[in-house]
């Protein structure tokens, strides 16, 4: 920021933005790619494993389910948030991030009881995923019905 330019209420936001320390984009992106890739590769491993007994679609669903369960356990042991501290989107976007978003509020609000704590707060972060996902799937299916006749 030019030292001679006056900081006013109007340009304050721009001034703060210039002054802000920037996240190291490259580092964040590297870790997101690496961790995200590893989680998906592990998922692929489970798909290959389950394919020995099931058809590909069921194997794929079971593999995702296994990842969800593992991530839930890691959340319980207090490990998943440590991964999230540096992996960012790499640990948020895979289905394991969804699991973490379901389990962490459940754990946090247990002290408020099993009904209003665990039960009500479980979907605090992940609720929007289910709500939006179901809504859009119904809309798209209806559209396909109309178009596909």
């Amino acid at each position: 920021m030019d030292v001679n330019r006056e900081i006013t209420r109007e340009n304050y936001k721009a001034y703060v933005f210039e002054k802000m320390p920037k996240s190291s984009h490259w580092k964040n992106m590297f870790w997101a790619f690496l961790i995200g890739g590893i989680i998906c590769a592990i998922g692929q491993g489970f798909i290959e494993l389950y394919s020995l007994w099931f058809n590909l679609q069921d194997a794929s669903i079971l593999a995702s389910g296994t990842l969800v369960f593992i991530a839930a356990m890691l959340t319980g042991f207090g490990v998943y948030d440590c991964i999230g501290r540096f992996a960012g989107a790499g640990s948020t976007i895979p289905i394991t991030g969804f699991s973490n978003a379901v389990v962490s509020p459940a754990l946090e609000f247990r002290v408020e009881g099993y009904v209003y704590g665990v039960g009500a707060k479980m979907f605090l972060v992940a609720g929007p995923v289910i709500v939006n996902g179901v809504t859009i799937s119904v809309i798209i299916a209806l559209i396909s019905l109309i178009i596909g006749g």
Binding site: H25, N28, M29, G36, G37, I38, Q44, G88, A89
Partner: peptide, 18 residues
């Protein structure tokens, strides 16, 4: 392929977050 595509999707997410 799983590693590259999965990592790539997360990378796009991270760029959006950044």
């Amino acid at each position: 392929k799983a590693f590259l595509v999965g990592g790539g999707i997360c990378l796009i997410g991270q760029i959006i977050i950044n």
